[in-house]
């Protein structure tokens, strides 16, 4: 079944599109039915999780500028102190969530806490507050990895070691969510076109 290469390593299982019905497996309520007692990823935080409550939202646009209305978005982030947690903390912080874009409006949203700054790689400055996003959908052959940064973190963003490896400063802007109101940030993701979002090979 596997053909290890000469050094004994196994080749990765190839990715395939999540397809139009990804909701049935990962967020079945949106597919129109209820099956699991525990729906995973409904919230990245608990009622008593410390930190500034924020709502992040946005739409995902295809190459014609139309919103993608059947995508799944997963988010992964540190807590307000900048720490990642594998399993939920006693105050219910999970750090991970998943949601679908709305079948009509194409809007997705996640209510969470604003993450703190996370250590950069050895020898690098701390990273600015950010949330990792992973996007799959019909027509996306392999999940797309990007990051959401915050417009009101200018000083931290300016020294963020990841934003800084993006050669063209204008492209860095594709990752920075605008602040629409207190605690409300909007990031639109463009799969193609002039404002194509920066996607990472992580």
């Amino acid at each position: 079944m596997f053909t290890p290469n000469a050094l004994g390593y196994l080749a990765e299982t190839p990715s395939q599109t999540a397809g139009p019905y990804v909701h049935i497996g990962l967020i079945p309520k949106q597919a129109g039915f209820d099956i699991f007692a525990n729906n995973l990823g409904e919230s990245p935080i608990g009622a008593t999780t410390p930190g500034e409550r924020i709502r992040i939202e946005g739409r995902i646009f295809d190459g014609t500028g139309s919103p993608v209305r059947d995508a799944l978005v997963e988010s992964w982030q540190a807590d307000a102190a900048g720490l990642h947690h594998a399993t939920p903390t006693p105050d219910g912080f999970r750090g991970w969530a998943r949601t679908g874009t709305d079948f009509e409006s194409g809007l997705w949203s996640i209510e969470t806490v604003k993450p703190g700054r996370v250590p950069g790689r050895h020898g690098h400055k701390r990273m600015a507050p950010h949330i990792s996003l992973w996007i799959v959908a019909r027509g996306i052959n392999i999940g797309l990895s990007t990051r959401l940064y915050f417009a009101d973190e200018e000083a931290a963003n300016a020294e963020d070691p990841v934003l800084r490896i993006i050669e063209q400063p204008a492209r860095r802007q594709t990752l920075i969510a605008r602040r629409e109101a207190a605690g409300r940030y909007v990031l639109d993701i463009h799969l193609q076109g002039e404002n194509e979002t920066v996607f990472f090979d992580i």
């Binding site: 599109t17 295809d62 190459g63 014609t64 993608v68 959908a137 019909r138 027509g139 996306i140 052959n141 797309l144 490896i165 993006i166 799969l191 193609q192 194509e196 979002t197 920066v198 996607f199 990472f200 090979d201």
Partner: peptide, 12 residues
């Protein structure tokens, strides 16, 4: 469907 949904620019 991938033609309008697949990013064109190289991943960073």
């Amino acid at each position: 469907t991938s033609v309008l949904r697949g990013p064109h620019r190289p991943l960073i």
